[in-house]
Design a binder for these strands. Sequence first.
DNA 1: AGTCAAAAGGTCAATTAAAGTCAAAGTGCG
DNA 2: CGCACTTTGACTTTAATTGACCTTTTGACT
Lengths: 150, 150
Amino acid sequence: MNNLADVIEQWILRQMASEQDEIIMLRRNEMAEELACAPSQITYVLSTRFTIERGFIVESRRGSGGFVRIARIPVQTIVYQDAANQIDETISLEEVKVIVARLRSHNLMTSREAALVCKCFAVVYERIPAQERVPLLKSLLMTLANQNEV
Amino acid sequence: MNNLADVIEQWILRQMASEQDEIIMLRRNEMAEELACAPSQITYVLSTRFTIERGFIVESRRGSGGFVRIARIPVQTIVYQDAANQIDETISLEEVKVIVARLRSHNLMTSREAALVCKCFAVVYERIPAQERVPLLKSLLMTLANQNEV
DNA sequence: AGTCAAAAGGTCAATTAAAGTCAAAGTGCG
DNA sequence: CGCACTTTGACTTTAATTGACCTTTTGACT
């Protein structure tokens, strides 16, 4: 972990951890000075690591009084909600599995989680009639949406 | 055992043994230098011997600050098997949750997985009679045991 | 209001530092 | 011999880092 980009990433994450609202604001140049790196390096780290896919929103302003604001967002919730919305009485187990695979491929769940969820779904399909099934499937999916890493 | 690939394999295994967390990180080029071999030889050994089937996970990054991380994945299966053995017709949902919590605290599942599995169990308890329940609970648990990371 | 300079942050292309790929050549055993 | 496994190195791809130059924003001074 002696590469600059990683050091910067950790630095930012630590700052965020010390806030309780998951939002921080920083001055790019000050930070570059503190970390003894090129200011553009900060930009690089932000654009490679603090992406929307990884659940961050970065906003900034130039000019005097400029800043960079980094916020962590629960993107997951939105995508999961969307997935859950596709589930109704008519959907087949195979179709549900496709939805799970999509979540998996977007890194919104691990393959272990995908395997588990598919297994559960199989059980539900086997044992429970269609109408009762729907809310169960949805709530199982949303269980993952509402849990954050580790 | 005087072939290079085997020597490299042993070298890596010895490094791992000297760590207590079964994870090592190394620079491919440095290692190649130390072992006086072509860097690509390291790649070869990793891809033939440190495979997922043999219980390893290899991750790497190119570019400056690049690295190769090798992790041995524990023989979870035994612990999971043990957990599954504790499940019988008499066990309550609360007791099952305790078992899950233990697996979780030993890092044999993530908290997301734990949440998911508990949710599934709740569904099973609610809908399915005791005798039929047991094999389902066991097979759900073992689904996780048999899946390896990522 | 208009202008201008200073103070931010952004872009991009060039450079350097890894690791990966793959085909070809080598080795050794049944 | 023939086949499977090793070994190598030239070439490819990816990641990180920097610095020169660009754009936006503000505020002070006409």
